[in-house]
Design a protein around this nucleic acid. Structure first.
Lengths: 191, 191, 191, 191
DNA sequence: AATGAATGAGCCTTCATTCAT
DNA sequence: CATGAATGAAGGCTCATTCAT
């Protein structure tokens, strides 16, 4: 995601950008503040003038990541004209994106795995992201199946969302997208 | 997985047992060797006479975890007489187990999230587990659909496995099993 | 020590005022420049345009504190008409002031405890304060015992000053003024 | 205070010994863990295997200091045969000791100045020391004035203790023992 | 004067691991 | 096998100070 305007990036943005790369690739706990500031070419003190803690940077990263990733997803389906096509498009996006990210998977789910403490501030961002993604897909299903009963729509949405999460997980685990066509075919049959 | 004989547990087993609890609950990187030996009541040196590194303990944990978890799964479906009932039973198991483990999810997938390095020794255990689980389920689908074409069986298996991984992920993320009935109904419709 | 005119306080004075509160309450080394400027609502750069270092602020604080505290002491005995009454009054002041300051004790002695280096600039202010206080009390004793020999006056002053410092210390240590009456009675017997 | 036997000192004792020197000379907050381990020739990790924090070392130091200093005091008056001589001896000790310690004063009072927080663990040790010293002197006064009323003994003790604390403070402040003879003479007159 | 971003040495503490006993 | 003292690199974070605006 290149910045759209040519305004000079702030150090804060530099830090988030570097952290995004490292947290995502190496994991949150395997990435030290030291490495982040080193790769960003920024002093220790500067880091802590922008973020009160590593955790605060983690939250800022997840907030930014939510915007970025949601943008990618929406962009990828913006050309589709029907809700059904959009839903199917999200599964195509899954394959494309996972290959592009070297099969690292969902930043939010990965960070949730690393941060089981139920009161972690990171969890707030994670849950917010997952909920928003969920609502986005629920809306698409509702749009497509507007004629059906609430219960039917809800169940359809539930399994499609589980298929989305499952496909993501499977591709991450195996570094292989070969399950995707069958999954997509099943989704199609549900719509 | 209880030990089959009544011999006193070795220190090595004590360490794995304590590590299992802590790695699973807190995460691999958030759990220090110090905490493990402390809670196991074992000396530092003794630890390193049994495991050459924390990573080696991690591998031993995952090996043991594979046996334990697979045992739970097989036990839970051993009463079923048909392949179809066994497959559906795995989804019931999912709900029961996830509630019992406080929604922490799959030790292997969580550890994969924490340890993205592709050459990590932990990854070997993770991949082995996931592959064995996959083969187990593939066998069940093959047994059930023995009359169908290889391609059909393969596709059915793929989507069921994705549904299994997806349901697991969804329950972990939301600490809620309410997606499970719809997922199970879909699986049933596929068999 | 209120400012004698009604001009708005300068930032410099704000800084000294905030520092006074924090240095006294928390100790000199436990109080950071950051906290001072934050509570004063003043920028980092502004701080260093007024004081070349934290130590310089410390000196300014002690200078101001000397004026303030000496003012309190003099005010408290200004109503007394004899030297003897004034001397006894200083011990009454001790009790009143120590209770008011929550038994934190003498800013100068406390800072001396924190700053043992013999060439510390802070020490200059501390010694100056203690000397001036000493001369003030010596004058009172001289006034009262003007008929006695120099040696006698000097010895009387010495023990009274030691009793003053001792009472201050004792009240600080115990957060309790119950030694004061006995001390005051002894002082009275010496005059 | 040299160790009386030739047993090899433990690293823990080395650390306390080095810390004692540095905390006393430079102050608690001006002395870093780094400097302590460096001068003790001990690794970081070793430090924290002996003390869970710098504060814990501080407490251990004060505990040891209490024994050491009390020993010095008792030794210095053990040759005296009467309570009166012992009391007067404590003031002689004051002068001797203060010159020997380069007028740094009482480790406990200095540390109290640095650590105003009322719930500091260091304060527990400080208060314990001051109380024990107080009881020691109260006992001497009681022994000497056993014929007098409780109130009389209490008041005498109070002023003598204040004189002790005051003399200590005055010598520390001025790096000069010249007040001591007059103080000692006054104490003598009270006994 | 005034600002506040930027600095980097230093803070206390924890880490996984080694080694002599 | 078992011990636990010892290691030192690295962890996250705060410090007093500088400097371009």
């Amino acid at each position: 995601m290149p910045t759209t305007n040519s305004s000079p990036k702030s150090k804060r943005d530099d830090l988030i950008e570097v952290a995004a790369k490292l947290f995502y690739k190496q994991g949150y706990h395997c990435t030290g503040v030291q490495q982040i500031i080193q790769e960003a070419g920024i002093a220790k003190g500067t880091f802590y003038s922008h973020f009160k803690s590593k955790e605060a940077l983690g939250c800022a990263w997840l907030k930014a990541r939510h915007q970025e990733w949601t943008g990618w997803l929406l962009d990828s389906i913006s050309g589709k004209t029907t809700a059904k096509a959009k839903i199917l498009g999200t599964f195509d996006f899954l394959g494309t994106w996972m290959q592009a990210c070297d099969y690292r998977g969902c930043a939010f789910m990965n960070t949730l795995s690393e941060t089981p403490a139920i009161d972690s501030p990171l969890r707030v961002e994670i849950v917010a992201h997952l909920n928003e993604l969920k609502e986005m897909m629920r809306q698409l299903v509702d749009d497509h199946h507007s004629a059906r009963s609430k219960k039917e729509r809800s169940d359809t949405f539930k399994v499609i969302f589980v298929l989305f999460e499952g496909a993501l997980t499977e591709i991450r685990n195996t570094r292989d997208t070969s399950s995707l066509p069958a999954v997509k075919a099943l989704v199609k049959s549900l719509l």
